[in-house]
């Protein structure tokens, strides 16, 4: 990864009595696609607004290329934002919306024309220059908003839930498009979303946040496969979270059985939590498995069936393409690498 471009150090933010950010430490690198992911109210948008300069941190520092910028007004920062509801100027056409930033900087008219047509081409809106922005579709407005930000050649592009207002199909297209644009312009994207699938499919780095605290920073694969705590495991997809005891390195005990696993570095006899992803559990004949139970329910979900198996200690959620009759006695099988051991969260 490249050089550090933005650094948050112990950033907190209070709105009146309420503390929205409780100490954020985060490094953001050049050319990185970083996603702030979390449920609403977790502080992800506030973090973005602090980077953009719309909110000032209550405590802590924001560094841009090593220089403190937390008191700098937004119009002096080398970042641009794509707003949640696009915030296009309704009284300007597509061309003038995109040219707004360059006009402010008094760039030469012919250069503006060149840059605007280049960026409109990049977002696939050639020939839309004279259109009224209020008459564009949601997806087109989205593209204008991205073009308007990118034309200023920012070092960092901030995107505040930009796909939230689009329908599912358009969303998927824009996800791919955004990733493509980011590769093409080669700048840092900081993307805010509450959609875990979106975060996993687009990002280089995912920052999972909850209640003003960063829960985990990692690649999408890390976040999904090795969640650090129950919140992350629960938020990133469906999962079975089981209380367990780590007997020693690579041996964990739950539901009355001992299982081999691949996790190390816990204390002996430490109380932990284990994540079993629903798609990692295989349904086998009862005699071939340690944990056994009966199929309690089966729901057809299109690609897979969602099956709940009732066992002695708990209900397990399983995704499988096979069909199992309700009431059937089954066994649950999983390999050592399917068991993800996490530190137990303090509540």
């Amino acid at each position: 990864m490249g050089n550090k471009i933005i650094e948050l150090k112990g950033v907190t933010k209070n709105f009146g009595e309420q503390q929205v950010l409780k100490g954020i430490d985060l490094n953001i690198y050049e050319n990185e696609f970083l996603t702030l992911l979390g449920p609403s109210g977790c502080g992800k948008t506030t973090t973005l607004r602090i980077i953009a300069g719309f909110d000032e941190p209550s405590q802590g520092q924001v560094l841009f290329n090593g220089i403190e910028i937390s008191k700098l007004p937004p119009y002096k920062r080398e970042v641009n934002t794509v707003f949640q509801k696009y915030a296009l100027f309704p009284f300007l056409n597509v061309y003038d919306n995109v040219a707004f930033g360059l006009n402010i900087k008094k760039v030469d008219k012919s250069i503006i024309a060149q840059k605007v047509s280049k960026v409109l081409k990049l977002v696939g809106l050639e020939g839309f220059e004279k259109r009224d922005v209020t008459l564009l579709s949601g997806g087109q407005q989205q593209r204008v908003a991205i073009a308007r930000a990118l034309v200023n050649e920012p070092k960092v592009l901030l995107l505040d839930e930009p796909l939230g207002a689009l329908d599912a199909k358009l969303r998927k297209e824009m996800q791919i498009e955004l990733k493509k644009i980011q590769k093409e312009v080669g700048i840092t994207f900081i993307f805010v979303t509450h959609d875990q699938e979106e975060a996993l499919s687009m990002s280089d780095t995912v920052v999972v946040m909850n209640e003003g605290i960063i829960q985990q920073i990692g690649t999408p694969v890390d976040i999904y496969n090795e969640p650090e705590n129950r919140f992350v495991a629960d938020f990133i997809g469906e999962s079975n979270i089981i209380e367990a005891v780590m007997l020693r390195d690579c041996l964990v005990q739950f539901d009355g059985f001992q299982f081999e696993c691949v996790d190390k570095g816990f204390k002996d006899e430490e109380e932990v939590e284990v994540v079993l992803r629903p798609e990692d559990i295989d349904i086998v004949k009862p005699e071939n498995a340690k944990i056994t139970g009966v199929v309690k329910s089966l729901v057809f979900k299109g690609v897979h069936h969602e099956i709940v198996v009732q066992t002695k200690y708990r209900d397990y959620l399983i995704h499988t393409t096979d069909y199992f009759e309700v009431g059937l006695a089954v066994g649950l099988s999983f390999g050592p690498e399917d068991i993800h051991v996490m530190y137990k969260m303090d509540y």
């Binding site: 953009a52 300069g53 719309f54 007004p73 937004p74 119009y75 970042v79 641009n80 934002t81 707003f83 949640q84 509801k85 915030a87 296009l88 100027f89 009284f91 707004f100 930033g101 402010i104 900087k105 308007r148 930000a149 200023n152």
Partner: peptide, 25 residues
């Protein structure tokens, strides 16, 4: 919409420019 004013700041307009180019319009 407050976000229009923020958008103007974001695109490099100071308070005076934001007033005449966005708020007044």
């Amino acid at each position: 919409d407050k976000s229009l004013i923020e958008a103007a700041y974001d695109l490099g307009a100071n308070r005076v420019q934001t007033f005449f180019r966005v708020v007044f319009k």
